[in-house]
């Protein structure tokens, strides 16, 4: 290795080194800060948390009670991510014709001109090597396991106020149950839970009810996101259970939908390929 090459190698990693040193120098005092952890919020929750929210699981009490507004924002992020991801992937059909040809690395064709439809790229998309995605083992195991996972997901969701778990955690388990069912499902299976349309409707309705639950506080409680169930005389934990169920269904349907969309993308790619043959 000549000195010049060493120098150019050093030169090329210089920006990386500079940014690492800068970031490291700023973050090390934060990572190593050793002030005693503040306990005011913890003490308050330990003493009053159950009385104020009705949930013994204090984490649930915080994220569905005290800070439910944050959770609403988080749900929205999930909703937008699901809808955006599915949109971006779904629109990928024929994206090759709009963009650059993967084979033709030498002369990239301007995308705008192609998108405007002035030229048409006649080169066929490269063949994706088709791996065998399903085996009997996978189908049998996931098909049998799916319902069990679904039941467990509902348990985690419904008991979120008492035990570790809650809407998000339960929802994710439900979503994996849905994906299992979809993986193991054969033609003409008796469940409609793996249909994209059903999941999209479930998700939209759950989001609507979540917004509605926040709104009802305005009329039945004493403001947005107040516990309107307590306002009509039900036990106050009901609010957290209700939110857990809504969020669980929403997360389950949303992430399940995303999983289904990615699975059917695999199918779509096959279909595309067949068309081009």
């Amino acid at each position: 290795m000549t000195p010049r090459r060493v120098f150019s190698a050093l030169w090329s990693i210089l920006p990386l080194v500079i940014s690492l040193v800068a970031v490291g120098a700023i973050l090390i005092p934060i990572f190593l800060e050793s002030t005693p952890w503040p306990v005011e919020a913890r003490n308050h929750l330990e003493d009053q948390g159950v009385a104020e929210s009705g949930a013994q699981n204090l984490v649930s009490a915080v994220y569905l009670g005290y800070r439910a507004f944050d959770t609403l924002g988080e749900t929205i992020v999930l909703l937008v991510a699901v809808s955006g991801t599915i949109g971006i992937i779904a629109r990928a059909k024929g994206a090759l014709a709009k963009g650059f040809d993967r084979e033709d690395k030498g002369s990239p064709v301007p995308a705008v001109a192609l998108a405007a439809g002035t030229t048409s790229l006649s080169a066929p998309p490269p063949r994706l090597r088709r791996a065998k995605t399903r085996t009997d083992l996978l189908e049998v195991v996931t098909g049998k396991l799916g319902p069990v996972v679904l039941v467990f997901g509902f348990y985690v969701m419904l008991y979120g106020h008492l035990s570790p778990g809650g809407g998000f955690q339960g929802g994710v388990v439900i979503a994996s149950g849905i994906v299992f069912l979809a993986l193991g499902g054969k033609e003409g299976a008796s469940t409609r839970l793996t249909e994209a349309g059903v999941l999209a409707r479930l998700e939209a309705m759950a989001f609507f009810f979540l917004v509605l639950a926040a709104f009802l506080g305005m009329f039945m409680g004493s403001g947005f996101f107040t516990n309107f169930l307590a306002g009509v005389g039900l036990p106050s934990v009901g609010f957290i259970i209700l939110l857990n169920i809504i969020i669980g269904l929403k997360v389950g349907a949303g992430i399940g939908f995303m999983g289904i969309a990615m699975l059917s993308r695999v199918e779509g790619a096959k279909g595309e390929e067949v068309n081009h043959d």
């Binding site: 913890r42 929750l45 915080v62 800070r67 944050d70 959770t71 988080e74 998000f168």
Partner: peptide, 12 residues
């Protein structure tokens, strides 16, 4: 108990 607030925040 441990402080539940960080856990709830980090869940988000």
């Amino acid at each position: 108990v441990v402080d539940p607030v960080p856990q709830a925040l980090m869940l988000t």
